[in-house]
Amino acid sequence: MNTNTGAQDAALSALPEEPKGTLFNGAVVGLHITARAFLPMRSFDELELVAGKGITGDRYMLGREEGFYSAKPEEGRQVTLFEIETLEALQRDHGITLRPEDHRRNVTVRNVPLNHLVGKVFHLGETVLEATRLSVPCRHIEEITGQAIFDPLINRSGLNCKILRGGTVRLGDAVWMT
């Protein structure tokens, strides 16, 4: 057994020479917006993302500003994403049923490791997003859903993004990074 060859340090930044898979091949499985803070999210088959501004009709669209956090402007809140796998984990590990319209993020995705994407640029259908930071759960959501979901959502509460290239995002669209 070799020890202290320096391989460990090199391995930290290495990727396999012959990749066996791709980083991820995700899909859009839910699209939701709401007009104002507290109101139920409505489900859509497609949403219009406007570069640098937000989602047409959503509470955080620049110029609309009717969201719970609108008094605290943030560039990276133009669109928010959430993993369907988190909803599955809440059911599996905590017996909590939370539906895509309940988590209050705009885009629910499958097979996209959101926590890996902070600071990265990636594709969401015909749009291009830049992930600015992880979302933080908010007590507000427990008030709205009446479920104790704050703790189980810590560190997996979704991703806040800036819209670099706008366009229409549809259910089933691919999510990928080049």
Binding site: T34, A35, R36, F38, L39, P40, R42, I144
Partner: peptide
């Protein structure tokens, strides 16, 4: 009602 007739919390 909501100013735009959106659904209200249940």
């Amino acid at each position: 009602m909501d100013p735009e007739g959106w659904e209200l919390p249940p």
